[in-house]
C-alpha cells in the first residue's frame, strides 16, 4: 500500500510543539551551561566545563540539594505509592460510597499548590497549627514539633504534604490497574486455598506492575520538580535544609543572576531525573508477568 506524503503533515503540529517547547529550550540551556551569562547582559564568555566542575566540586549547597532531593523523593515515592495502593484496594469496587471516596481522595489534586502550601503551613505552625494542637489534645504532646522550622525534619514535613497533595492522583491509576485484573484469577486463587496475602503477592501485585511502574516513575519526576510547594512553604530554609535542585536553580538564576551556572545545574538535573526514571523502569519491568 502506498502511503501519501501528506501523512507526514499530521506529525508536524506535534513535532513543532515538541521542538519549540522542549528541544530548542534544552539545546539553548545546554549552550548557556558553557557560558558565564548573567541573564541580563548582552555579553557573555565561554567558560568550558567550569560550571559543571563548580557544581560537583565547588558548590556545597548544590551537593546538599541533591541529598535533600533524594530524601524528599524517597519519602514521597514510598509513602505516596503505599498510601495510594492501600486506598485503591479499599475503594476498588464501584459502589456509591467508593465512588464518593475516590472523589474525596482525589480532591487535593485539584487544588493549586499555593493553596496547599498555605493550608499546610497553617497546619504545621508550631504555636497555632492544628497538628500540634491535636497531638496535645490526645496526649501525644511529646510528638509536637517545629515541623517546618526544625532543619532535621522540615524536608520530611514537606514530603508528607506532597503525599497528601498527589496520592489521590496515583490512587486513580491503581484503581484502573486493579479493575483490569481478571476476576477469574482471584477465583482460581480462592479455589487453590490461597490466603489474602498470597493472593495479593502472586496475583494482584504482579499484574499491577505496569500501573506501579507508572505511579513510581511519575511520583519520582513529580517529587523532583516539587518547586511550588517548597518555594511557598519554606523557601528552601531553614539553613538550606529544604533547598531542592529546582528551587536552587531558581535562586541561582534569578537571585544571583548566574544564568550560565543555573543552566548547567538544569542540565545535570535533567540527566539525574532521566537516569533514575530509566533505572526504575528497568527494575519494575522485570517484575511484570502475564498469566
Amino acid at each position: 500500500m502506498r502511503i501519501s506524503k501528506s501523512i507526514y503533515l499530521f506529525f508536524l503540529p506535534g513535532l513543532v510543539l515538541y521542538s519549540l517547547f522542549f528541544l530548542y529550550p534544552t539545546i539553548s540551556a545546554l549552550f548557556y551551561s558553557f557560558t558565564d551569562w548573567d541573564g541580563l547582559s548582552t555579553a557573555f564568555q565561554f567558560v568550558g566545563i567550569d560550571n559543571y566542575t563548580r557544581a560537583f566540586t565547588g558548590d556545597s549547597i548544590f551537593q546538599k540539594t541533591i541529598g535533600n532531593n533524594l530524601k524528599f523523593m524517597l519519602t514521597v515515592v514510598v509513602f505516596q505509592t503505599l498510601v495510594a495502593l492501600a486506598f485503591a484496594l479499599i475503594v476498588i469496587k464501584n459502589t456509591k460510597t467508593n465512588v464518593f471516596l475516590r472523589a474525596l481522595y482525589f480532591f487535593p489534586t485539584i487544588l493549586s499548590s499555593v493553596s496547599v502550601a498555605f493550608i499546610w503551613a497553617f497546619i504545621y505552625d508550631p504555636s497555632m497549627g492544628i497538628l500540634n494542637q491535636v497531638l496535645e489534645l490526645i496526649g501525644l504532646d511529646f510528638l509536637a514539633q517545629n515541623w517546618l522550622g526544625n532543619s532535621n525534619i522540615a524536608i520530611y514535613s514537606l514530603a508528607i504534604t506532597q503525599v497528601w497533595f498527589h496520592a489521590g492522583q496515583m490512587l486513580i491509576i491503581f484503581v484502573a490497574g486493579l479493575q483490569a485484573i481478571p476476576e477469574e484469577l482471584y477465583e482460581v486463587a480462592k479455589i487453590e486455598g490461597a490466603s489474602k496475602w498470597q493472593t495479593f503477592k502472586s496475583v494482584t501485585w504482579p499484574l499491577l506492575a505496569p500501573s506501579a511502574t507508572i505511579v513510581v516513575a511519575y511520583t519520582t519526576i513529580q517529587s523532583f520538580k516539587a518547586f511550588d510547594l517548597v518555594f511557598a512553604m519554606t523557601g528552601g530554609g531553614p539553613n538550606n535544609s529544604t533547598e531542592i535542585i529546582a528551587t536552587y536553580i531558581y535562586d541561582v538564576a534569578f537571585k544571583s543572576y548566574q544564568f550560565g551556572y543555573a543552566s548547567a545545574i538544569s542540565i545535570i538535573f535533567m540527566v539525574i531525573i532521566a537516569l533514575i526514571t530509566y533505572l526504575q523502569f528497568k527494575a519494575l519491568r522485570s517484575d511484570r508477568v502475564s498469566y
Binding site: 529550550p25 534544552t26 548557556y32 518547586f227 544564568f259 543555573a262 538544569s266
Partner: peptide, 11 residues
C-alpha cells in the same frame, strides 16, 4: 526563553 521554559516545568 530556554531556561524559563525548563523552570516553567517547575514554576
Amino acid at each position: 526563553v530556554g531556561l524559563g521554559l525548563i523552570l516553567g516545568a517547575c514554576a
